[in-house]
Amino acid sequence: MTAAVILVVYAVVAVVSLPRLLKRGEWAERAPRLAISVWLAACVSVIASVPLSALAAVIPADVIGHGLAEFFEVCAAMLSVEADLGFSGAGVALSGAALVVARVAYCGAAVLVRARRERRRHADMLTILGRHDGELGATVLDHDEAAAYCLPGRGGRTVITTAALRSLADEEVAAVLAHEQAHLRGRHHLVLTVTEAFARAFPRLPLFTRAKGEVARLIELLADDIAARRHRRIHIASALVRLATGRAPAFALGAGGETALTRVRRMLNPAAPLGRRERLAGLAAVVLLLAGPVTVAVEPGLRSFLAHHCHSISIF
């Protein structure tokens, strides 16, 4: 029961406090990939704590030490009593945990289905109105607004408008298309789907709301960094300035947008990357967030298991 209480308290505190902790300093801008991992781990950690707390509350730790056979016998007996007496605390706990998991799964499926439907419609439109440019490796769309974006999914493609081609130099076009190709190769749309599903499932909880916006921002920074490996930062920055007002479809990933001007400053004045110790600390935070709730949940049973078998061995 103690483990269940710890997990519940952790989930409640983490939902409020983790967004504040993760937003401190400028470390995320210096290592966007690591920052994305930390935000995702934080969300998964809180979600996992709910079903784990229910299991820790329902399953007695002492029966685990006597082996799987007795463990399953006790579980069957508990279920039989629950069926005879109706819902008790254990039934409520398990039902609540199942609802949380089902809510996240439903919202994730809804986001995926809606995005796939919208992308399919847009892909059909591009087939009719766009033309593939083999030299650019992108679809050119006749439009009077300068924009560049990618359409993720199966057969994903990069798109650039004729207005963008007229306003950008060749080096800038290559840089911005590299940015969009980084989104496609990294399957960044799937990461955004996860955070959107969490935010949609629990819209008023600070951690999931903040994670959605932060991960979307960090993914753009990550794509900028990948493009900067092959193209000069000045070309990426100048392209972002020209595309800052360009609007991409809501279900696509665009090079411009609200964060463009902030990213321009980052491209022109890059901060030093994280040191080895800082990166190790970030990786340790990811491991702690993911493994911590599991460790708390299984520790009583593991301790009981070891105590029982060590006692059995000492007798012989």
Rank of each mutant, 00 (worst) to 15 (best):
R200F: 05
A197E: 12
R200K: 11
A148T: 14
A199I: 03
L177W: 00
A228P: 00
E196Y: 01
G155N: 14
A148D: 04
R204T: 11
L190S: 07
L222D: 13
L177K: 01
D224L: 10
A105Y: 00
R131N: 06
L207R: 03
G137C: 06
H183D: 09
G153E: 00
V194Q: 07
H231Q: 12
L112Q: 12
G130L: 09
A148Y: 00
E180G: 04
E118W: 02
L205Y: 02
H231D: 00
L205D: 09
R210Q: 14
H235L: 00
D142R: 13
G186F: 06
E135F: 05
T139S: 10
T162K: 03
G130A: 05
L190N: 03
R232M: 01
E171F: 02
H143R: 13
H143D: 14
D133H: 07
A182W: 05
E220D: 10
A223E: 07
H132T: 01
T139G: 05
V111P: 04
E172P: 02
L112M: 06
R116S: 15
G153C: 05
A223V: 06
L205V: 01
G137F: 09
A163R: 13
P206D: 04
A223I: 12
H132F: 15
L192V: 10
H132S: 12
R121T: 00
R210N: 13
R217F: 05
C150N: 14
R229F: 01
R204M: 07
L205W: 09
G156M: 08
T158M: 12
T158Q: 06
F202R: 07
A146Y: 09
G137V: 07
H122F: 15
A148R: 03
H183W: 08
L207M: 08
E145M: 15
A138L: 03
L218F: 07
